[in-house]
């Protein structure tokens, strides 16, 4: 449980009904991480959505099949939200979240959040639209990465 004002301070959750904010505040919990820790790993089940209060979080994607190498695709700062895969089937994380600094987040359990979204169309529409935006950017980045690794064809020898 956290203070409702904290939820409201995030633009994705601004101007919602008081009952909706209260419900979110009841579900949410604050979490702290040390610099260097991973909040979650790519491929893990997406069980929570995160609102960043303090610190910098690097979203990293695997660059090899084994997941032994990663590169930063995006950095998230205070006031931003991450963990959008928790809203879209199959609810699997598409990037790892690495704490570049000590980090304080608000974590909202996904099942409760998704239930709230079916009840509140305003919340549902807004969050789903934002999830589209994040997924679209991630798709573009992945496509660029894929294209850059395909070896150029050599001309056929006579």
């Amino acid at each position: 449980m956290i203070a409702p004002e904290i939820i409201e301070s995030f633009s994705s959750f601004a101007n919602l009904e008081e009952s909706e904010i209260k419900a979110l505040a009841t579900l949410a919990e604050e979490e702290r991480y040390k610099a260097g820790e991973f909040i979650f790993y790519e491929g893990d089940p997406a069980t929570k959505m995160y609102l960043l209060l303090e610190g910098q979080v690097e979203m990293m994607m695997n660059t090899d099949a084994e997941g032994t190498r990663r590169e930063v695709v995006m950095t998230v700062g205070p006031g931003e939200v991450f963990g959008w895969s928790s809203l879209v089937e199959p609810y699997q994380l598409t990037a790892s979240a690495h704490c570049a600094t000590p980090v304080r987040v608000v974590a909202i359990p996904a099942p409760g959040l998704r239930a709230l979204m079916t009840v509140s169309c305003t919340l549902g529409f807004r969050l789903m639209q934002k999830a589209c935006q994040v997924a679209s950017a991630r798709l573009r980045a992945t496509r660029v990465q894929l294209l850059s690794t395909i070896p150029k064809r050599e001309p056929l020898a006579d």
Binding site: T63, T94, C121, M128
Partner: peptide, 29 residues
Amino acid sequence: CAVVKKVCQVIARRLRATRLQMVSLGVTG
């Protein structure tokens, strides 16, 4: 909401397909 959710699912599916392509190519960093 239903339409935007369906759109989101399409994007997510294309993202998964692109990542599988990368894995099958044995992409190394």
